[in-house]
């Protein structure tokens, strides 16, 4: 693993980055799925009819309780049994997106519940409907509060995209494998190269979320009991 190894990894770096784009594509597909479904599940759990809330909780319970690899196999091989011919990419995005929705729902539920219930009452007294109150008063504040914990989920699913190799998507870990199988002595430096790529990606992503959090913070505004934006001192 001397200078030759470093040289080989450097010469392969464009391919590594190309394979990383596959991870980013999976990520770009799964995050909106997790976000949209996660908010829906959170709203259903907090405001929904008991039956709807129970269905939402069952969804969350299932997708948080099953290992990611098992979900990938269930979606890729399992859906075919029901006549649904999903591509590996689609299966990966759905499995990982639904899984993330389970985690994201709990981030959003906590944030929604951190917004004082009195605000909904106040909004209703001003003539807003319940739906209006939730979408124009509660959710904007809750989403702002959710950013710090959401950045955890962001980092976590970004790295989890390396699991989709299992259903035949040639992402960066799979590419790393093609390098270290032909050059076994380069295994460690290959893993380090992948580690570096993800370290840079999560650092950039979290920095972006931090900027967003500060941009969206309302100066002097405080929500009691919330873990997020505190304006005191």
């Amino acid at each position: 693993m001397g200078p030759d190894g470093a040289g080989l990894i450097l010469s392969q770096f464009p391919e590594f980055l190309g394979a990383t784009l596959v991870n980013l594509r999976v990520f770009a597909a799964l995050i909106p799925i997790g976000f949209a479904v996660g908010i829906g599940v959170a709203l259903a759990q907090v405001y929904g009819h008991p039956v709807v809330a129970a269905i939402a909780s069952a969804w969350e319970w299932f997708f948080r309780g099953v290992p990611a690899l098992v979900l990938l196999f269930l979606f890729f091989y399992g859906l075919g049994r029901f006549g649904l011919d999903v591509s590996a990419f689609m299966a990966g995005a759905l499995a990982m997106g639904f899984r993330s929705s389970g985690y994201q729902s709990q981030i959003f539920r906590g944030a929604i519940q951190a917004v004082p219930a009195g605000q909904v009452t106040a909004a209703r007294s001003m003539g807003m409907s319940r739906v209006q109150a939730v979408f124009t008063v509660v959710l904007p504040q809750a989403l702002r509060l959710a950013i710090p914990s959401w950045s955890n989920e962001f980092s976590s699913v970004l790295k989890d995209t390396t699991l989709v190799y299992a259903i035949g998507i040639n992402e960066v870990m799979r590419y790393a494998r093609t390098v270290y199988v032909s050059h076994a002595e380069l295994a460690m430096i290959t893993f380090l190269a992948v580690a570096l790529i993800f370290w840079v990606l999560t650092t950039l992503g979290n920095a972006g979320l931090h900027v967003l959090e500060r941009r969206l913070a309302v100066p002097g505004f405080e929500v009691r009991g919330a873990g997020g934006a505190r304006a005191d001192r």
């Binding site: 890729f76 091989y77 049994r81 011919d85 299992a166 035949g168």
Partner: peptide, 17 residues
Amino acid sequence: IQNLSFDSIIPAVRAGK
């Protein structure tokens, strides 16, 4: 030609993938 991990190939052939 599709690159797929060894353990997954027989299940994939069975599932028509």
